[in-house]
Structures are given as structure tokens and as C-alpha cells.
């Protein structure tokens, strides 16, 4: 019998750039930032026990690897490694991100044959969307303790994919992982959100009620979220709240029945509501 790879857990987390800057600049104990980092203490202990081999990290590129020249809806990183990007402030001083090319290519092939038109990326710098979640999970290690497969979703140029498409891509990813011929402990991570708006006179919008309902439904009844139109995310959760569709990819990759292990919510981190949730995939 061949041992297969398995998605053992899924988690959602915000990827606010200022959180990365606070950690990098040694400000994580400041009264402003301390509650944010304390909210991830459980997670850091938990993931150290889980010892994942691979994290599939769903995030969006923020005009870093992709400009307006080429705008892939879904792009999977199949490279050996990914360098932390210079987003305009100079690159974050965090370790290089090592990929898992064989599993990434397998996921690309499997999902494309399942009619998801993935873009395959062999060279890509990764921005705060990917590195801030790694910092929240692992702190400041010399090397990241596992392989990471970046999966970038377009949420910058409208239209982004629908919530339903994201949820179904998650299912296709699960099928791909479960058919991989190597025993691997895989954790999938959906990032971005929660409610926030970075642009225009409405900047600073936060909607705790919406965020709480989103987390409740994501946990207990994700199918109730998949048909929510883009306009509702923007209206209720702010223009950058649309990032939350990426959490639906993570949720789609899990079984319908899951156990919610942990939840954390905090306002503010700079302009944003920080949300975090962990699901055990029974």
C-alpha cells in the first residue's frame, strides 16, 4: 500500500504588512502590537507539534510579482525557492521560502485536468501576503521549518474569481494532495482580510459583525458563503475585504465536518481587522 499525502488542517489568517514590520523592527512587545502577537501564541505551539511537511499558502500578490502586464487569476508557485520581495520599502529580512516543486507540479497538473486553468510560475518573488503569515506561524527562525507552495489569487483587478470558484478549487486541491504518492503532512492556509478598506474617503472601514458571521459560517456552513457576490464583500467588509474569498479555497480543501480548534479576532492592526481561525480536518 502506498502512503498518500494528507491535508490535516486548514487555517485562516490576515496578512497585514504592518504586522511583519512590527516584528522585523522589534516592536512586537509594544502595547499596540502585543495583543496581536499574543493571539498567535496558541498557533505557534500548535503548529510546532503538527510538524507539517508542506504548507499550501493561498495569498494575493500586492503589485509585486504581477504588475498589470500579466494578471493570472490563480497562479501556483512550482519553483525550488522564492525570494522575499522588495515592495518599495526594501525586502523583509526573513528566510528564503523553499517550495515543493514535485507536489506543486502535481497539484497544477491535477487541478488543470479538473478544469481549473492554473498559471504555472517558476520564478516569483513573494511579498508580505505570503511572508507575514509565515512569521505569525513560526516567529523569527533562521530557516522556515517546512516547504511552502505559494498559490496566488488575483483580488486586485476586477473581477476576481467568484467565491464558488474558490471553494471548488479548494476541493480540487484536496483531491490532488490525496492522490500524491508520498506520505506528507500538508496544512493549507487561506490568508488576507478581514474587513478593511485602504482607499478613498471610506478608508478605515471595519465591520466586526460581518467578520464574525463570516467566521461562523466558514466553520459550520461554508456553502452559505460561496454565492456571496463581490459587491457584498466590498460593501460590508471594505474594498480590500474581498481578500476573504481566499479563505474559501482553504475551507473547500477540508471536509465538510471539521473541528474548530481556535479563533482570534482583534481590531486594529494598522488599517485592518485581524482574524485567525484553525480547523482540524478530521
Amino acid at each position: 500500500m502506498i502512503n498518500k499525502a494528507k491535508i490535516t488542517a486548514g487555517l485562516g489568517t490576515s496578512h497585514v504588512p504592518a504586522i511583519g514590520a512590527a516584528l522585523d523592527n522589534g516592536n512586537s512587545n509594544d502595547p499596540y502590537w502585543k495583543p496581536v502577537f499574543e493571539g498567535y501564541e496558541f498557533t505557534k505551539k500548535w503548529i510546532a507539534e503538527q510538524k507539517p511537511d508542506v504548507i499550501i499558502l493561498i495569498y494575493n500578490d500586492h503589485a509585486t510579482a504581477f504588475s498589470l502586464d500579466i494578471i493570472p487569476t490563480f497562479a501556483i508557485g512550482c519553483a525550488e525557492y522564492f525570494q522575499p520581495a522588495d515592495e518599495g520599502w526594501g525586502p523583509r529580512q526573513v528566510p528564503v521560502v523553499n517550495g515543493h516543486p514535485r507536489l506543486a507540479w502535481h497539484i497544477a497538473q491535477s487541478t488543470i485536468l479538473d478544469e481549473f486553468d492554473m498559471t504555472i510560475v517558476n520564478k516569483m518573488d513573494v511579498d508580505h501576503g505570503l511572508t507575514v503569515p509565515l512569521s505569525l506561524l513560526f516567529g523569527q527562525p533562521e530557516l522556515w521549518p517546512c516547504k511552502v507552495i505559494p498559490l496566488a489569487v488575483n483580488v486586485v483587478q476586477y473581477p476576481p474569481p467568484t467565491g464558488n470558484r474558490c471553494y471548488n478549487l479548494g476541493k480540487a486541491i484536496r483531491k490532488a494532495v490525496e492522490s500524491f504518492d508520498e506520505e506528507l503532512n500538508v496544512i493549507i492556509c487561506g490568508t488576507g482580510g478581514m474587513s478593511h478598506q485602504l482607499q478613498g474617503p471610506r478608508a478605515g472601514l471595519i465591520n466586526k459583525e460581518f467578520d464574525t458571521k463570516f467566521l461562523d459560517l466558514l466553520s459550520a456552513n461554508p456553502k452559505a458563503l460561496v454565492d456571496m457576490p463581490h459587491v457584498e464583500y466590498i460593501r460590508e467588509a471594505g474594498s480590500e475585504g474581498i481578500e476573504m474569498i481566499m479563505w474559501l479555497i482553504m475551507r473547500g480543501a477540508l471536509k465538510e465536518e471539521i473541528t474548530e480548534l481556535y479563533r482570534f479576532y482583534h481590531v486594529p492592526a494598522s488599517n485592518t481587522a485581524v482574524g485567525h481561525i484553525i480547523f482540524k480536518n478530521e
Binding site: A18, A63, L68, E87, G88, L198, G204, E240, S270, N271
Partner: peptide
């Protein structure tokens, strides 16, 4: 302009995202 692209001007000026956001709100 798109805010993620425009943010690079603010970065060039040494501004934080919060400073940029505030400037749009009055």
C-alpha cells in the same frame, strides 16, 4: 490608480500605509 500600486509612491516617500490611508479621508 490602484491603491496597491499607488502605495509604492508612499513607500518611496517613507510613509506608512496608515499615513496614506489617513490622507484620503480628510
Amino acid at each position: 490608480g490602484n491603491i496597491y500600486f499607488l502605495a509604492k509612491i508612499g513607500a518611496c516617500d517613507g510613509l506608512s500605509f496608515q499615513q496614506m490611508a489617513a490622507s484620503m479621508t480628510g
